[in-house]
Amino acid sequence: MPILQPLGRTFLLFLQATGRIVLFTSTSVSHCVRPPIYPRLIGRQMIEIGYYSLPVVGLTAIFTGMVLALQSYTGFARFSAESAIPNVVVVSITRELGPVLAGLMVAGRVGAAMAAEIGTMRVTEQIDALDTLATNPFKYLVAPRLIAGLTMLPILVLIADIIGVFGGYVVSSYKLGFNPATYLKNTMDFVEPQDVISGLVKAGVFGFLVTLMGCYHGYNSRGGAQGVGAATTNAVVSASILILCFNYFITELFFAR
């Protein structure tokens, strides 16, 4: 059957890739928790992921908060429900938009860079050189990045939450005529710890996924400049899809009754 054959082949390839990723993940995680740990390398990755992503994540957050307030206003004004704007902004930002948009921006910035760097190291034999110098590449390259991704994304998202709410506040109070004090009071009264915590859990998972995909595709890249290019694309695309996919399931875990 010429229709079933490619279907089956694609399915088998998919299973193969899944198996490889699971193996890669378990090896990486086991190296994250076993000594030796490299604090210097973890610190460098934390700065790279956390500090240098601040501008792009902050800009994303402020404009998202601003547009949320504006759009909610145009919609809610029809039902005279403008007073719900602070609630809508804070819940959307902390639960969904903060972690997802920060995750996607970091995937584009950090995931791509990691895939390119590790991929270049693979095709120029630098990873083989690490092995011959009795240094495990998982320990030296992958583990510090995973640890940094897992810890820095929640911090980034916490900052993004604050900046996002601030964006909504600015638009509401200076453009839509809200009372600034009431806006903030409504925000603080409405937001619950679970909203923020679910967002931070998401952020941790997304940070892990982005760095994992960057490392996995870089580590397995083949065939020169073209291979590194493909690895970079795959890292960003797979990380973005995984983020959106895991986002749904984590939401279900937290909020589905």
């Binding site: 120029t124 034999e125 630098q126 083989d128 050189a129 011959t132 110098l133 009795a134 495990n136």
Partner: peptide, 20 residues
């Protein structure tokens, strides 16, 4: 394997220096 690899040194074809 790590212990055995300590016995080895290798000069790679394109040197494979760590450019970071």
């Amino acid at each position: 394997l790590e212990r055995v690899r300590r016995k080895f040194g290798m000069l790679f074809q394109n040197s494979a220096l760590f450019d970071s």
